[in-house]
Amino acid sequence: MRRLAGEAVAGALMTLPAGIAYLLLLLLPTLATVLLAFTDYELGAPALGWIGLDNFREMLADRGFGVSVRNTVVYVGLVTPVSILGGLGLALLVEAGVKGRAFFRAVFFLPVVSLTVAMAAAWQYLLHPTIGPVNAALRAMGVGTPFWLSSSDTVLLSLAAIGVWESIGFNMVLFMAGLTAIPRELYAAAEVDGARGGFDRFRLVTWPLLGPTTLFVLTISMIRSLRVFDTVAVLTQGGPNKASEVLLFTMYQQGFTYLRLGYSAAITLVFLAVVLALMWVQTRVLDKRVHYA
């Protein structure tokens, strides 16, 4: 008994450093954000007052916040499916090829490791209404030349395209890993069982066996696109006329431009709640349908 108690104490002592780090670096800041969300604290203000749910009430009433939520939803709704289907398509193509697997993997993965802020400059040039190569090509084809990043009609679309470009390679690499984990014998069995074409084999083997991978890619893609910030901050500043204002950019502006940390913390809380809800749905509902053990 004494020895067991001693072991328990020793165990507790050994986990103490990690425990303290967790407390200081994760738990307390989160807790502070949660508490701030219910105050009217502004950076540099001498005092702060407990205002209950006033921040959330203001959010509901604020038309700007509504636009920001709508834009975020549209952005996620565009980037997630396109980057998942595109990533899957690229993975299938690259895996099917005999040569250049490593080359294509590197090429498509490049945007993931490159610095978004730096690449945004390249995008600004590419999409420039007058000197950009995209519009130059469109002009050559005799098609209209939109003001990609400076028109409220196209700005979200342009940002979404950059978002897809950013994450498609990442998704492709994840899908490639998923594809290599599928036993070759299953494809042989599918062929013998009568799956003649590639589509039959995809439906019978590839798609179901990629289930766990797809779920993971879906989770990661949604959260990554929900977190869109740097392209907006660098390229559009939420403009023109709030047409590209997204959740995290609103939070950033409230907190760091207007220094309203209380309100900004409330937005963060909403963001966290959305992320957690998504993860809950994915682990609880979808997970049951993609693992077959």
Binding site: E185, L186, A188, A189, R196, G211
Partner: peptide
């Protein structure tokens, strides 16, 4: 598929889903 054969694999190769 066109050879009119059936095969039993060493790993059984059942569709797990």
């Amino acid at each position: 598929a066109e050879r009119d054969i059936a095969m039993v694999f060493q790993s059984y190769a059942l569709y797990p889903h």
